[in-house]
Design a protein around this nucleic acid. Sequence first.
DNA 1: AAGTCCGCCAACCGCATCTAA
DNA 2: GTTAGATGCGGTTGGCGGACT
Length: 306
Amino acid sequence: MGRQPCCDKVGLKKGPWTAEEDQKLAGFILSHGQCCWRAVPKLAGLLRCGKSCRLRWTNYLRPDLKRGLLSKDEEKIVVDLHAQLGNRWSKIASHLPGRTDNEIKNHWNTHIKKKLRKIGIDPLTHKPLPDASPRHQPEQKLPAPEEKLPVPEEKTETVADQRDEREEQIVLTKSPGFCTDEVPMLCPDEIVVPLRDPPPPLAPPASSSTMCMAVSTPTTSYCSSSASTGCEDDTLFPIVEWPDTAYLMGLDDDMIAAASASWEDCLVQPPLQPFAEDTFGAYIYQSSSSASFDQQEAIWNKLELF
DNA sequence: AAGTCCGCCAACCGCATCTAA
DNA sequence: GTTAGATGCGGTTGGCGGACT
C-alpha cells in the first residue's frame, strides 16, 4: 500500500556522531545535494536512520550555519516572534538565517526565558508576571508557568489560538524567510551580507494600521537573497510591530488608542538608537505599553537593574 | 582533591501532517 | 478513498563540563 520502510531500524547506530560519520554525511550531501533522506545513510555508508542524518545535517553540518550564541539582535527577534508565534521554533528560525529551530529552542529555554522572568515578564504570555518582583524571582525556583502550572484558558488563547489567524499577516509583514530544511545549500561566501541601510518596512496589514513602529537593527543579517530563498525583494521586516502585539496582548481598540497616545507622550523612552545595547529594550516597552505610566517606569527601572 | 550540583546542548522520541502506492 | 511510510516539528532527555562545596 504505502511506501517502503525508510530504513531497517535493526542495527542502526544512535548517540553522538563521530567525526568520521560527519565527514561521510557532509561529503555525501555536498556532492550529491539533499535528496530523499531515507536513502542518504545507505548511500553515504552510514549506519544511521535518515531522520538522524537529516537532523545532524540541519543542526550541525550545514555550511551556512552560524556558530556561537545568538546576538542581542537575534534574541530580540526571537522574543518578538515568540510573542506572535508561540513555540513555533521552525517558523521563528526561518527569520534568522543560519540558525536552527533546535538552536533557538535551546537558547530560549536556557537563556531568554530566564531573562524574561528576571525582568518580570511571563515568557509564555509575554505579559508582566503577577507580582513581578525581579529582585527575588531569580533566586526562587518557581515552576515555569508553561511547565508546571495549569495555564489559564484566557492566556492560552491569547498566544496560541490567535496565532493561527494572525500568522498569515505576520508572514506578510515579515521577511518572506525560509524554513531551515528548505535552505538551499550555500557556500560560506554566498551567505547574506548584513544590510546597513534598510529600506522602509512593508506597509502594515489593514487590521493593524493604528500605528506601526518599525525598528531596524543594522547589525543583524537578514534573508535578502531572492535567488536562494525565493524572496521577491530585499525588504527587511519590522522587528516591532506594536499594533499586532497589542492585539495579541488582548487589548481592545480603546486600550490600543490610549496606549498609542502614551507611546508618544511617555517620558520613559525606549532606546531607539542603541538597540544593540539591550535586546529587550523595545520588547519591554511594547509589553508595558498597556500598563500605567508607573508600571512602565517600574519596568524600565527593572531593566536598568537587569 | 573529590564529590555533588547545575546548566547547556546535541540528539532522540513521538506526534502530526504530507504523500506515494 | 484508504493505508502506511516519509518527513517535519516540538518536547524531552542524557551526557558532558564547569561551578560549587
